[in-house]
Amino acid sequence: MGVPDTIKALSDPIRRDVLMMLKGGRLTAGEIAERSGISPAACSYHLNILKKADLVMEYRQKNFIYYELSATLFDELILWLSQFGGKCDEE
């Protein structure tokens, strides 16, 4: 996915909340749904969009699927967004 798709994925407040939760470490979909107060189906929908945007990765461990942030894309996004910022004052 490109930058427009990533920004679209970030436009939803529930998905932003999920990303903030994952900032603290890996979680299962059930843990994410419970913490955010959404149904498992809604959680699956939002996680799928975040995965397609490469904002989260999933890991299978035994009978569980864990989700965590994809740091690589965030680094690329920060670099891309920084081109629109003002120049920093040099000391």
Results as ranks from 00 to 15, higher is better:
Met1Lys: 13
Val3Lys: 11
Val3Thr: 15
Pro4Asp: 13
Pro4Leu: 14
Ile7Pro: 01
Ile7Met: 14
Ala9Lys: 13
Leu10Tyr: 11
Asp12Leu: 05
Pro13Glu: 15
Pro13Cys: 09
Ile14Asn: 13
Ile14Pro: 06
Arg16Ser: 13
Met20Ser: 12
Met21Gln: 15
Lys23Asn: 13
Gly24Glu: 10
Gly24Asn: 11
Arg26Thr: 04
Leu27Glu: 11
Ala29Arg: 10
Gly30Lys: 09
Gly30Phe: 02
Ile32Pro: 01
Ala33Met: 02
Glu34Phe: 03
Arg35His: 04
Arg35Ala: 12
Arg35Lys: 13
Ser36Asn: 07
Ser36Val: 12
Gly37Met: 03
Ile38Thr: 01
Pro40His: 04
Pro40Glu: 05
Ala41Met: 08
Ala42Gly: 05
Cys43Asp: 03
Ser44Leu: 02
Tyr45Trp: 09
His46Ile: 01
Leu47Tyr: 04
Leu47Asn: 09
Asn48Leu: 08
Ile49Val: 15
Ile49Lys: 15
Lys51Glu: 08
Lys52Glu: 11
Lys52Asn: 13
Lys52Ser: 10
Ala53Gly: 07
Asp54Gln: 10
Asp54Phe: 00
Asp54Val: 02
Leu55Pro: 00
Val56Phe: 07
Val56Ala: 10
Met57Gly: 08
Glu58Phe: 00
Tyr59Phe: 11
Tyr59Cys: 01
Tyr59Pro: 00
Lys62His: 11
Lys62Ile: 05
Asn63Phe: 07
Asn63Pro: 02
Asn63Ser: 13
Phe64His: 11
Phe64Gln: 15
Tyr66His: 05
Tyr66Ser: 03
Tyr67Val: 00
Tyr67Gly: 01
Glu68Ser: 14
Leu69Trp: 01
Leu69Gly: 00
Ser70Asp: 14
Ala71Tyr: 06
Ala71Met: 06
Ala71Phe: 08
Thr72Asp: 13
Thr72Arg: 14
Thr72Glu: 11
Leu73Arg: 15
Leu73Lys: 15
Leu73Asp: 02
Phe74Met: 05
Glu76Ile: 03
Glu76Cys: 03
Glu76Tyr: 04
Leu77Ala: 04
Ile78Ala: 14
Leu79Thr: 09
Leu79Phe: 08
Trp80Ala: 12
Leu81Cys: 07
Leu81Trp: 07
Ser82Val: 00
Gln83Pro: 01
Phe84Thr: 03
Gly85Phe: 06
Gly85Glu: 07
Gly86Val: 00
Gly86Pro: 00
Gly86Tyr: 02
Lys87Glu: 08
Lys87Phe: 06
Asp89Ser: 06
Glu91Tyr: 12
